[in-house]
Design a protein around this nucleic acid. Structure first.
Lengths: 207, 207, 207, 207
DNA sequence: AATGAATGAGTCTTCATTCAT
DNA sequence: CATGAATGAAGACTCATTCAT
């Protein structure tokens, strides 16, 4: 099955754009946005400076593309999976595992995102609207009906939700800071998720 | 008791240096390091551009001063002076309250620090050596002997420690992101600390 | 009568070249040389960027082509073919009408030419040699023998000639500056020519 | 009489600004706006590139300053001298002499102005409003009451006015084009003015 | 001969740093 | 010591030109 000429071209263009995208992710993550130069990215991507501008309007546009793609990915993975009516432990466990995986596998981009979100109000608005609010809402709606019933003890839901998500964010930062040899990277991912889930569900106190 | 001429001079110099330091903290925190300019800082401090260079070698040196002072502050306050003989709930509660307060009151500087630490390996080494490792160590040493006894259930101590600290870091970030109107800022600090402590100690599951 | 294959090709090529030429005239006139880009011209001409370089060596070459063609056009039309035997009023009137028409219909190209001529000495030399000098000479030669006779009063011929041509140039510029709604465009062309001719011949003073 | 420290500084700053201004006039006039580079201007002014930006916001701002100053100058010289109730010949003569002087002494700036006005609509609006309209109005108001009386023969005033101003503009362009050796520069300014005035008043026809 | 993506030299502009006053 | 104008290196971005398809 052959591609038409047109399709070939588009395919190459897509590859090239991805190539630049990947290079930018790498460079931005390592040096931060401001410290990264377009020549840096061009070199990393193996293209000329001008070529980058054939695919992205500006350095800032390149940053936005990265962050947006990441936002979209996050939302998709996180939200399109509607909460199955599984039991509390399973649901929380899978949610924690999943978010933790995203966080740990993308520490660089995540921190890039956190940095840049701080100084671009529009980006922050978008991120909050598209990622933060839905995530919090999903969790709050899950916990709400189960509080006071058998499942969960009474608690301040918004705080608990933020503590849970915050823990995942913080773990990703610590993992990134400690690097390859830190304890977070040496533990099997599954075990890590289980431990964290257990902490959230049962706390550390002996019953 | 008068100051000698010499002492007066030094006192004024110290004030001036502090003045610039404070201005830099403010400006760096708001705009980030790269987006801040020396004229910005000079204006904020109410001095001339050239004056800054009488007290700091370079813009980067000014950043280092801030981060180092923050590192020193962090490593000496509260946590390390905590009498580890108090009972578990009290110890953890005060630790959480204190770190959370630091985090919430200094989100900007904290995030500045996180950003800059990422791209300066030497700074990262210092921070890890002087803040991260001692903090984790202290907590680990606190938990270790109490695990398996009455106080705490068996668990993976390094993970629990990182989850706890990570939670505090993450909560600061979320609080900063949601801004003045977010739930984190509307709850009394004390209540927030209590809720988080309870979460860590008992989890969310109904017993 | 058919064209040979060869002739067809050449005919197409000629068309293509003209197409690009026309587009360039339009774009250069509107935006000025420096502000015009090759992609602009390509789009206007409905061809690809690369195609332009099959017909013109460079952007500058394209500009030269336009200006040269304009110079050639100017030096061959009307004025130089005018039978200088007609009576003074007729001769001057037709000259003014014709030059004025050229000026008013091509203000953009004329001003493009004026701009570019200023910074390209070689071009200026050409223009002066091929257009300016012959025009002035023709007029001077026309006026010379009639001065002091019945037709014209004694006057400084070079100045008068330059004032006449200058007036036409200046009127074009003013017309262009005032735009569609200015007085110059609302008056019938013929009336305009008549008025100007009368001014030159008789001045504004009441006899 | 001494200057205060403050006054000295301001005086130096003014000089410096003028120095850059003059250099820009020279460079823009020679090469045109787009072909001139900031390093060109800096070199001509004998300052560093960055210094220019201490006095002007941008290259475009520098252009605007030049053009505006020229517009203001023109308006002042031309308009603040109210038309004295002198006789027609004297009035026209002085007006022509004056405008012609401005045109001939500033051919470079004038053509720069003409070029740039074409592509900056806002600038054009300003120029028309502040220079063109007042000038035309002044002349029209002068001619109006004298038409049909003894002084001037009936004519289309707007056209005559534009022809007169156009002639001056055109003469300045021709003078610039022909350069130092052209006839316009070799004739005493006074004689030139007289000849042009006579042409306007009496035309070239023998009575 | 037509195409248009790739190229990189050339510009404007910023801003950390210096230094004469 | 304080000042702030001058400096010029460095970086984002544009666009004429090339060349593989």
């Amino acid at each position: 099955m052959r591609m038409t000429r047109q399709e070939q071209k588009e395919s190459i263009a897509k590859q090239r754009k991805q190539q630049i995208f990947d290079a930018a992710v790498k460079v931005f993550s390592q040096k931060g946005f401001d410290q990264s130069t377009i020549p840096d990215i061009a070199q990393e991507a193996g293209v000329a400076v001008g070529t980058i501008y054939n695919y992205y309007q500006s350095k800032h546009d390149l940053l936005l593309s990265i962050i947006r793609s990441y936002i979209v990915t996050e939302s998709f993975i996180g939200l399109l999976k509607q909460p199955p009516e599984s039991d509390a432990a399973t649901f929380l466990s899978s949610l924690i595992n999943e978010r933790l995986s995203i966080g740990l596998d993308n520490t660089d981009v995540m921190q890039l995102l956190m940095s840049e979100i701080r100084r671009d109000p529009e980006l922050r608005r978008q991120y909050i609207e598209q990622v933060v609010v839905p995530t919090f809402k999903l969790l709050e709606e899950y916990l709400e009906p189960r509080i006071g019933k058998d499942t969960f003890r009474p608690s301040n839901i918004p705080i608990v939700v933020r503590a849970l998500i915050g823990m995942i964010i913080g773990l990703s930062i610590i993992s990134n800071m400690e690097g390859e040899t830190g304890p977070m990277r040496r533990i099997p991912r599954q075990e890590l998720g289980a431990e964290v889930t257990k902490l959230i569900l049962e706390g550390i106190k002996r019953k």
